[in-house]
């Protein structure tokens, strides 16, 4: 039996949307208040979905304690209470939640105890992003 397990993690962080490819005026025009010079922040919510056969011995797709430990070491210890723009992953790219979602998907591909299905990130309660690599998201 194949089941899907989803776990939500939360972290606050700051960021500023700004591209070196634009001049100051273009940055203001494209990013609006997200370009304000000193940044701003969000309470990000990350929802990670993994899948696999339910192990008859444990009743689990994977041990939640293992997923939580992986998330603590690789997601929360890295992003929680940080300025995203100063992290290596945003040195070359804008710290939009699109790019953040793709980066978090890349991170959780390193979790080997189950198959990563998708990553969903909520930047605020009004906007959220989903990434599953190059697969069709419609039916998940």
């Amino acid at each position: 039996m194949k089941a899907y397990l989803s776990r939500r993690y939360h972290f606050p962080a700051s960021h500023r949307l700004h591209s070196d490819a634009y001049d100051a005026e273009q940055n203001r025009a494209v990013f609006g208040k997200c370009n304000h010079p000193h940044g701003h922040g969000h309470n990000y919510a990350v929802q990670v979905t993994v899948s696999g056969e339910v192990d008859p011995e444990t009743g689990m797709v994977c041990n939640l304690a293992d997923l939580d430990a992986f998330a603590q070491a690789n997601l929360l210890d890295r992003f929680d209470h940080t300025n995203l723009n100063l992290l290596d992953c945003f040195r070359e790219s804008v710290s939009t939640t699109e790019n953040l979602t793709i980066e978090i998907h890349r991170i959780f591909r390193g979790f080997t105890a189950a198959h990563l299905e998708r990553v969903h990130v909520e930047e605020t309660s009004n906007n959220s992003f989903d990434y599953a690599g190059n697969v069709d998201l419609r039916f998940i």
Binding site: M1, K2, A3, Y4, L5, S6, R8, T49, V61, L64
Partner: peptide
């Protein structure tokens, strides 16, 4: 819990 859920689509 609000932060943990499982989905099943009938896949065997």
């Amino acid at each position: 819990m609000p932060d943990l859920f499982a989905d099943f689509y009938g896949e065997r």
